[in-house]
Structures are given as structure tokens and as C-alpha cells.
Simulated assay, not measured.
Amino acid sequence: MKKLLYIFSLLLSLSGFAQNQSIFEKANALYNQGKYAEAIDGYNAILDTGKHSSDLYFNLANAHYKLNNIAPSIFFYEKALKLAPNDADIKNNMAFAKNMTVDAIDVIPNAGISKLLNNATHIMSFDVWAKTTIALVFCFVVLFLVYYFSYSTLKKRLAFIGSVVALTLLILTLAFTFHKYNLDKKDNPAIVFAQESKVKSDPNTRSEESFRLHEGTKVQVLETYNDWSKIKLTDGKTGWLITEDIKMLKDF
């Protein structure tokens, strides 16, 4: 009975994949015909099934860009980039989309050791760092066992040196794994979707207005309170805006 259920679920999955592929190809055809709004409907229909990919987000962003939908185009380019962080086409197209935004916000770069550490940490994803650490644990255990049970002086020496190197790399990768986890946990980006959003000093309508943001601007969400979100910009400015004015990028 379990096998029959497994086969049935597999067939459903394959059927759903084929259907989504058909919708994707039709949406691409509509895009090539200049029917961007209809193409968007097709891409969204795939997202409604719970499926997503960098290609889907990229094409969806392109369609919104063609219609001058600033916030959605940047939002979906950012989504695509999260799934394919080294894709040059996504980066180039997103740069064009960002040229349509109103807000010009400076970026305060990290400096010194902090910059080097963060750059090194972002070389790999958290999953890759974790898998590398596990692989080094395995290497260390094997080399230590070879050292412990070997009778040859040369084998002992080589196994000892190898186990020390593996242990050193293990400690380093473990540190990078935890640092990457903390960086990802703090990274809570969102895109402003409101045409204009008033950023307040406190989470209430009566508080003083600090500044204004416009659609397409990327912010970091620090915390939420009722219907308000505390955000931070790349230039260091912080403030509170209404949560419905933004869309979180981590929500898939």
C-alpha cells in the first residue's frame, strides 16, 4: 500500500512539473510577443503552486521591468539572485532596474579585519560551510585512527601531520560556519513597494517624520512592532515605517 501511495505521489509530482513547464514556456512566448502582463500572470500561476527557481524569478522580473514596475522588478531580481548569486545577467539587469529608483542612498563599507572576515565568510553558503566541516571531521577521525593503529613510523608521522592539518582546518571552517549563520540570521532584507513611504522616529503615526523612501529601495528590517517595522539603510539611517509598505525577500 505504501509503495502504491509513493508511486501515486511521484506521478502527481511529475504531472505538476510537466504542467508548470508548459505554463513557463507559454509565459515565455507571451513575453517574446510583448504581452508582458499576460506573461506575469503565467509566471505567478507557477509561483502559486509553490514552485520557484532563479529562471522563473528572473523572467518575472524582466516582465515587470518592461512594464516599468520598479519595486516588483527589483524584488524578483533580488529573489533570483538569492538562488543564483553568481549570475551575471541577473546582476546586470538588476542594475538597470535600480537606475529607475528615486532614492540615492550611500553605502558605508566595512573596513579592515571585519571586511576581510565577511568577504571570506561569504565565499560559500552556510550549507557548504557545514558540509565542509563535516567532511573535515571525517578526515580527522580517519587520520587519527591511522595514526593510532599504524605500526609504521612513517605512516604514523604522516597521519599525525595530516590529522593536525585536518583539525586546524576543521576549527577554521567551524568558525566560518557559525559566523555565516549569524550573518544570515541578521540579514533580513526587504523592498519598499509603496510609491512613497514616510519613515518615522517611533512606531506610531504621531511621531516625528525622519525621512521618506520610495518604491524599489532595499532596506534591512531590524525588528517589528504591531503594524510597524524598524528598518536600516546602507548609509546607517534607521526609522520605523508601516509594515505593509515593504515586502520581505526571505519569504519564498
Rank of each mutant, 00 (worst) to 15 (best):
A166T: 12
L174A: 15
L145M: 14
T177P: 05
L158Q: 09
D184Y: 04
L169W: 09
K198T: 09
K185D: 07
L169V: 03
F144I: 10
L145S: 13
G162P: 13
V164Q: 12
L136T: 06
K131S: 10
L158A: 08
F193H: 02
E196C: 00
K198N: 10
G162C: 13
S201H: 01
L145A: 15
F140S: 13
L143V: 05
L143N: 07
V141F: 14
F138Y: 11
K185F: 04
F176C: 02
V192E: 04
K186S: 15
C139L: 15
N188L: 03
S197P: 01
K185T: 06
L143S: 05
V141R: 06
P189T: 02
T173Q: 07
V146I: 15
V164P: 06
N182Y: 10
K186A: 15
P203S: 01
E196V: 09
A175H: 04
T205G: 03
L169M: 12
L136Q: 05
S150N: 07
I134T: 08
T205S: 13
T177E: 07
A166D: 14
T205P: 02
Q195M: 06
Y147F: 15
A194T: 03
A135L: 11
L154P: 00
I134M: 09
L169Y: 13
C139W: 14
V137M: 15
R157N: 10
I191L: 05
K185W: 01
P203A: 01
Y148Q: 12
K155H: 09
F149S: 06
Y148K: 14
I134D: 08
K155C: 06
R157I: 11
F160L: 14
Y151E: 14
K198R: 07
R157S: 12
N188G: 00
F149M: 06
L158G: 02
K198M: 10
D202R: 09
L136D: 02
F176R: 08
L167Y: 10
K155M: 12
S197K: 00
K198S: 13
F138R: 02
L143C: 03
T168S: 15
D187W: 11
P189H: 00
I134C: 03
Q195V: 03
T153H: 10
D187V: 00
V142G: 07
G162F: 15
T205Y: 09
F144R: 13
